[in-house]
Computed example of a mutant assay.
Amino acid sequence: MRVEIDEHGMISHARVRHARSTRIERGKRTGAITGIVVHQTDADTSASSLNSYRQPGANGAHFLIDKDGTIYQTAAIYQRTNHVGPLKARCLVIPTCKMSDFPPKVGPAEMHRIEMLKAPADRYPSNMEAIGIEMVGRARLPVGLKLAGEEATWSMARLRGEYAVFEAPTAAQNQALSWLVDAILDSMHISSSEVFRHPVVSSKNPTEAKGANWNLPPSAP
């Protein structure tokens, strides 16, 4: 289903509320948009994320989907935002390469540098090529988590980084996500194979957007 997109990259449709924050925009894209990356916010409410996007130096994605299915457009599509992070090697998954093709003990920054030397069609979409969709959802430590030894001295940030699990998106969020992804793919002529969960393309919490489903049948237009 196609939607109207203005010259700035703002969608004109009753299902999309404009909440653009230029503070998360990092300049006009210099190449084609090739994919979509689906995230979760690690926040409990849409208000907290929308407020954070208004702060100086804030990062964010192009869309935000609330738990009730409300879709906010928070950045213009034709603007780059920082939402992806260092890229993993897509060739390891296809697979057209193996780890021995990379420098020994290659880290995320070096892997990203190597990937960015490739044409967009040969790697995952980066910040320059990807549209980002955030879904409101918090990562929490499992109930009853038992800590022993050194782990008992870890900071909360470190514990969350190691053990936190993202909550499942709501049914309304997944329905809205399916509608939005379909509208973007159809309107911008992007292949359905180029939609990814954040941890697939970058080294992030593996549970982020684990329950995201953008392949539901359409509901309302």
Rank of each mutant, 00 (worst) to 15 (best):
K67W: 03
R17F: 08
M116A: 10
A61H: 07
P142S: 02
S203V: 08
M1G: 11
T74A: 11
C91T: 10
A61L: 08
M1I: 11
I133E: 15
Q40M: 11
S155E: 05
A47G: 01
K146R: 06
A119D: 14
A183M: 03
D6N: 12
A164G: 10
V181E: 08
S126Q: 13
A183T: 06
Y53H: 11
G107K: 10
F63T: 14
Y78L: 10
G211Q: 03
A109N: 13
S187H: 01
G27H: 10
S178Y: 02
G27M: 09
E110R: 02
E150L: 05
P56H: 08
K67R: 10
G35D: 01
T170A: 02
D68Q: 07
P125I: 14
A209E: 13
N51L: 05
I5W: 07
F102E: 12
G85C: 09
G35K: 04
N82L: 14
V200A: 14
G69R: 02
A183H: 04
K118Y: 00
G144A: 04
L141D: 15
A164R: 12
S202E: 05
A164D: 12
V106I: 15
A172P: 11
F102P: 02
S155R: 01
T70D: 05
A75G: 11
R54F: 00
W154Y: 13
R158I: 01
Q73I: 12
T74N: 10
L145Y: 07
G149I: 14
M111N: 13
A19Q: 09
L180C: 06
L92A: 05
V16N: 08
M135I: 05
D122S: 09
T170K: 02
E134K: 01
T170S: 13
D182S: 14
M111R: 13
T207N: 11
S192L: 05
I184F: 12
A171F: 12
S202I: 02
I94Y: 03
I65S: 08
V93R: 15
I114W: 00
M188R: 04
I133Y: 13
K88T: 07
A171H: 12
E134G: 02
